[in-house]
């Protein structure tokens, strides 16, 4: 990799690490094999594939790759003969928001990261949200979750899991999540706890149809008892929802 390509590769890696949408074109054959061009969704690009036609084609195809979020392989006719081109795209990972820095959350972060989720643990209680308990989380936020949700806005790919058992923390967070297009919303607690919670959410102005979006009792029924097993049941349920197996 030449010097410029090295700097481009570093920017690519940095974007991937931070969960930003980015694409990279690489010449797979030809005199400039290995040359790279970094492409951003806003149309900017950096670096060169070493041949004007290759650069033009890469820029032209970038929009398509950003729309489909699938990598693409092309053969480009250049003055020096055909060159194989690969357009890699790294979509931002789905975000899993975990409210409650509890024991289940620690195991859930492990499973979620293995499955490619970006994990954010939120708990306003500093005793729980201690960095040494969550060294593996992408982010650990010691704030009120409803305030955080209001600030960032939950999108269609967001998954929200509420685990504190403290209605002062859980219910405002749930209310905010239910007013968003979040893909998955789950809350820990028995049927009885959930009935109580549903009543409280109604009092906060939410409708039955909105409240029905909550997965509760949370997780697939795998007979989970230990915190790690409950985390596995939750993760399995999220995967099933993401894959369209359940609503």
């Amino acid at each position: 990799m030449a010097g410029t390509d090295a700097s481009i590769y570093r920017q690519f890696e940095e974007a991937v690490r931070k969960g930003r949408l980015v694409a990279m074109a690489t010449a797979l054959t030809g005199p400039t094999i290995g040359a790279k061009m970094l492409l951003w969704p806003d149309g900017r690009s950096e670096g060169s594939l070493g041949e004007p036609t290759l650069d033009a084609v890469a820029r032209e195809r970038a929009a398509q790759v950003f729309a489909s979020l699938r990598p693409e392989r092309l053969t480009v006719e250049t003055a020096g003969g055909p060159v194989e081109l690969f357009l890699d795209v790294q979509p931002p990972p789905p975000r899993l928001w975990i409210v409650g820095a509890v024991h289940i959350a620690a195991a859930l972060v492990t499973y979620a990261r293995t499955l490619g989720f970006y994990t954010i643990v939120i708990d306003p209680r500093t005793a729980f949200a201690a960095p040494e308990r969550f060294p593996h989380a992408d982010e650990l936020v010691t704030r009120w979750p409803d305030a955080v949700f209001a600030e960032v806005g939950l999108d269609e790919s967001a998954c929200v899991v509420v685990l504190t058992h403290d209605e002062k923390i859980d219910n405002p967070a749930l209310a905010m999540a239910l007013r968003s297009p979040a893909r998955y919303i789950g809350a820990l607690g028995s049927r009885r706890t959930h009935a109580k919670r549903a009543a409280a959410l109604k009092a906060l102005g939410l409708e039955d149809a909105q409240i029905a979006r909550i997965h509760a009792p949370i997780g697939l029924d795998i007979g989970a008892r230990r915190p790690e097993e409950i985390a596995l049941a939750i993760m399995a349920e999220i995967v099933a929802v993401m894959n369209g197996k359940i609503e």
């Binding site: 990799m1 090295a6 700097s7 590769y9 570093r10 690489t26 290995g34 690969f86």
Partner: peptide, 9 residues
């Protein structure tokens, strides 16, 4: 499969 050496960061 395309195999490439990565730059030393």
């Amino acid at each position: 499969v395309f195999v490439e050496p990565l730059p030393e960061v």
